[in-house]
Design a protein around this nucleic acid. Sequence first.
RNA 1: UGGGGCGUCGCCAAGCGGUUAAGGCACAAGACUUUGACUCUUGUACGCGUAGGUUCAAAUCCUACCGCCCCAGCCA
Length: 570
Amino acid sequence: MEEYGRASNFIEEFIDEDLRSGRFDRVKTRFPPEPNGFLHIGHVKALCIDFGIAEKYSGSCNLRFDDTNPTKEDTVFVEGIQKDIEWLGFHWDKLYFASDFFEKLYEIACLLIEKGVAYVDDQTSEEMRLNRGTLKTPGVNSPYRDRSVEENLDLFRRMRAGEFPDGSRVLRAKIDMASPNMLMRDPTLYRILRHHHHKTGDKWCIYPMYDFQHPLQDAIEGITHSLCSLEYEIHRPLYDWMVAQAAFAHPPRQIEFARLNITRTVMSKRHLRRLVEEGYVSGWDDPRMPTLVAMRRRGYTPEAIKDFLARVGVAKADSTVDGALLEACVREAMGSEAPRAMAVLNPLKVTLTNWPEGRVDELTMENHPDHPELGERTVRFSKVCYIEREDFMENPPGKFFRLAPGREVRLKGAYIIKCEAVVKDASGEIVELSCSVDLNSRSGEEGANRKVKGTLHWVGEADARPAEVRLYEPILLDEYEAAEALDPEAEEVEETASNAADFINRLNPNSLTVMPDALVEPAIAEAPVGARFQFLRMGYFCKDPDSSEGKPVYNRIVPLKDTWAKVARN
RNA sequence: UGGGGCGUCGCCAAGCGGUUAAGGCACAAGACUUUGACUCUUGUACGCGUAGGUUCAAAUCCUACCGCCCCAGCCA
């Protein structure tokens, strides 16, 4: 490895430096989730960095489950996480569990006791909290801080043996109760905790803490660069202390980066759990969730997600990425891939008054305008068809060039029609349009070669299959909407800030819109679950597992850009 | 008011003493169009949190302010 290429971010600069200086002669990273929930897109940033850097430097990346708190962990999550990582297309080198190393970690703890840098503390957690001091005042030493090595060893052994009740004692590092860094004020290394562990069962009743386990585990695995998010920056002195005390020959280097935030997206595991448990969503895989299970179900592709993270970049500044960037990545990934087809989400019946009775045309439609290799399909056109309700306006504004009374419009791949009459029901609602059709304007024929401003998607009566379509918006309101929702009277956004503190108050009531009466062409109805299409003019959609034989269900992954919607709004 | 970080276009983000301060998203205008999509073209920081200073030259170095984030779990 003489040439490392161009560093594309500050982490790679550090690594280049380490390789040049000889601090390391290879690169080994790790992705260390706690199996206490499903992975979300925030984790994908770490995944892309951990695996991406390993790959760039011809190194490797381990998958390690930091399963040191059995009260929160479960095998369904370890399985789910592995599946998600595989789905994204990342390949780990070794698969480890922190729990595989409990014995080894116990030995190191004993070593620290023998060195006189760890002790058993009998204080209650309350006493410990009080004696820790505050951000501005130093803490005071525990009365148990100066126990003999022998006594500490004996006590720690008996902690493991189960002689003491939960919470009665802890093992602590002996560092500095006056340190300005709170984490260095004799951090807890082990606690007594009787709880069934998903891997080790009831073998252990003491469990190591993150600040003890994580750095040592990195060192044991031979990790060179331990990449984590910014909130661990303050843990770094402790990380280094731990590895130094255990006397590892090649201490890993911890480097921190800013975690991912996306506008109007819930990104905290705690909050996501609450959405699930309190029923605001249907589950971890509700397509509105930012979890990978949910994004997969909604129809996002690994390519789009990884491209998004690549475009977001890596730096140390706290940031919130515009959700529009993710949408742009999805559209780009899908644009040349997804076959096109027609679906009418909110149908309006159109009857062609001059269409010959009983005539049915079979029309050939391309599956993709730029990729003929994706083939063609046949759709049927007859006297009755359905168009999108929003494509007709009785009193259209200036720049509207869809259908309106007396106006002509082209039906994609079919004929040009003209609206002759509007049929309404007793309540005045429009129920049907009577249109004339230019029988010489069939696509591909000479009569079709005239300028018509609007082109609409449609579904013919002969082909129309019922479907349910689900539309999504961000799960959170934007700042302005949230302020309005909480207090329409408020003058300033700031005034409602405290009410907005609970994210539940900022949930978007329109995050899910169900279109129960959509009509789709057969290609869409018959596609397998997971199939993706561009519904012409409506967006990209993916068939949901909720689909049944007679009723396909589609999720809108992302809408198409809609210039008209913008014009109409102003 | 202790300590650790961070502040470059609406949102991300390059930049590492000498460049007209990259690029993407968003936005705007135009071309093309049987998807108001796609594609294409064009435009968008005389400015780099603020104020001073060093230098022939500063977003890059120094000083002082200002703002934001993290830390007082027997969570990770």
